[in-house]
Write a protein that binds this DNA or RNA. Structure first.
Lengths: 209, 209
DNA sequence: ACAATCTCTGAGCAGTTGCTTAGCATCCGT
DNA sequence: ACGGATGCTAAGCAACTGCTCAGAGATTGT
């Protein structure tokens, strides 16, 4: 689809690029993100993004060298923000309850599903996403480990990495099925997990969400 | 990307379509499926499918009215086959062990991830996929329920639907991360789950896979 | 005031896509 | 032998894509 476009060697690296703090640039990023979530990555084309932002298509190429750059920037923005939010929340209260609350926010899950699908055939993007995912996993792993210890569970009973993968998988499948319109069993599962966590952490107010 | 193509009212339904049992048609389906798994759904275009099958692009439209029809047929083929295999395996041995073995085959998971991403912005495809997914879920749910009862677990301890969603989520996240090149914690998690199942079903030979 | 820089745009190239139409060649039942 | 169905193909249309280039306006530093 985007392959086979001949790249002229000259000037590719010397092209003028708009300022990184431009207001227009931000409008383009917002439009791209919205399009990505609403219609999938295939809808994120220079013309459609510009139309959504109420701007001319050439501006996309003025602010982003390639479409891959646009995707990467959209991804980075969200990843950085959610990593920061995660660390803020965990610093305030390092518990399974907090971890679950952050994970159970399905917006983040559908965002990452779309990006994984995209990464599946845009190699330049895959490595960047993988790198962020590893960082996220490491941070979450530390938090899970600490929370489990605080709740009096040893790593023999359930290794932190297992708990984390299980929780991540759960929220991912919930997001995936919700995108398909399936919801059977979701509430029961969520309730079950929340009760299990509440049993481990009785000191916390039950289901304050 | 595919939107906005005007559909002429005349002759759309009267176009000649090749026989459903044609050998050529099957080659096209195989090529499409291979392309889908290797490079993602965006690579599945009439020209690329035909090239992969060593045929002319017009043949795709001779055997399939639209590209959506092609996708649907690819999906149906796989879904029918894996549903049949599931029912065969469960009839022979209705146990958590068998269920896990079938789910842990990641090929199926990456296939369905690609299709969910596709369904996300091809409405005609979404409903079909959702319908199959519901059928699959119902069949699996019955099997999980029976297996749990056979292992002496009541629905109070863990409702079948919860066990099923957890298991599905787990294999899905494993497939997703594997696609990204992430494998940290996967083996530990798989081992943990298999040990837990083995503890519930000691009569079965341990890890015969 | 003037030059340099930055932001933006009109026009366009080369490539891709889904899908159609008209027609050729082959097979098959009668 | 022949008329119809079937498998296949050459040619092409209209729409879309990423991206470039030259230059017009606007802004800014001096």
């Amino acid at each position: 689809m985007w392959q086979g476009v001949p790249v002229p060697i000259t000037s590719t690296s010397s092209r003028r690029i708009g300022a990184a703090d431009s207001k227009t640039r931000e409008r383009l990023l917002n439009a791209a993100e919205q399009l990505l979530l609403e219609e999938g990555y295939a809808a994120v084309t220079s013309r459609r993004v510009a139309a959504k932002a109420g701007l001319k298509p050439q501006l996309v190429h003025y602010y982003f060298r390639t479409m891959d750059d646009l995707f990467l920037e959209v991804y980075r923005r969200r990843a950085d923000e959610s990593l920061a939010r995660f660390e803020r929340a965990i610093a305030a209260d390092c518990s399974l309850h907090t971890l679950w609350r952050l994970n159970a926010d399905l917006r983040g899950a559908s965002f990452s599903i779309e990006f994984v699908a995209l990464a599946n055939h845009r190699k330049a993007i895959r490595s960047e996403i993988a790198a962020y995912a590893e960082r996220f996993r490491a941070a979450q792993l530390a938090a899970v480990g600490a929370a489990l210890v605080a709740d009096g569970l040893s790593a023999d009973q359930i290794p932190p990495v297992v708990a984390l993968v299980l929780m991540t998988g759960l929220t991912q499948v919930l997001a995936l099925e919700k995108a398909l319109g399936m919801t059977a069993g979701h509430e029961a599962t969520i309730e079950y997990v929340e009760r299990a966590i509440a049993r481990l952490e009785p000191q916390r107010a039950p289901s304050q969400r």
